[in-house]
């Protein structure tokens, strides 16, 4: 009977302390979020500019955009062989990965002479 009484006390204190601690944590996190808001993206920043650079029309700009994208894809493929297990930025880090690939990849042009 005594141990049951101790058990009841443990339950009351235990659940009370767990609730109290987690409520304190919730409060502190809420305060943290209030003071450390992530900067919201403004429309001005995210909206594409409608003004074209001098000497370029919409078609030329579209062609440049496509070329840049294609070039990025080629660079990405060079840095990321199909056999790679990890996403870029994880293990090994992308720069280390590129370095290793450059050392071993067969696509690298062989310099003669």
């Amino acid at each position: 009977m005594d141990s049951l009484q101790i058990g009841l006390q443990l339950t009351l204190f235990g659940m009370g302390i767990v609730f109290f601690l987690l409520a304190v944590m919730a409060l502190l996190i809420s305060l943290l979020l209030r003071f450390d808001r992530a900067p919201a993206e403004t429309m001005e920043e995210s909206a594409p500019s409608r003004e074209f650079p001098e000497g370029l029309d919409a078609d030329a700009l579209a062609a440049i955009t496509i070329a840049v994208r294609a070039h990025r894809i080629v660079r990405r493929k060079q840095a990321a062989p199909a056999m790679r297990k990890h996403q870029p930025g994880t293990l090994p880090s992308r720069w280390v990965g590129i370095g290793r690939t450059r050392q071993t990849a067969s696509w690298r042009p062989i310099r003669r002479g």
Binding site: S3, L4, G7, L8, L10, T11, G14, M15, V18, F19, L21, L22, A23, M25, A26, L27, I29, S30, L33
Partner: peptide, 23 residues
Amino acid sequence: PKMMLLGAAGQFGIFGTLLLALV
């Protein structure tokens, strides 16, 4: 962060079982 409280409620099994084991 309010979800923290649900985590606290979900620990009742620890103390409820403690009582049952004592019984």
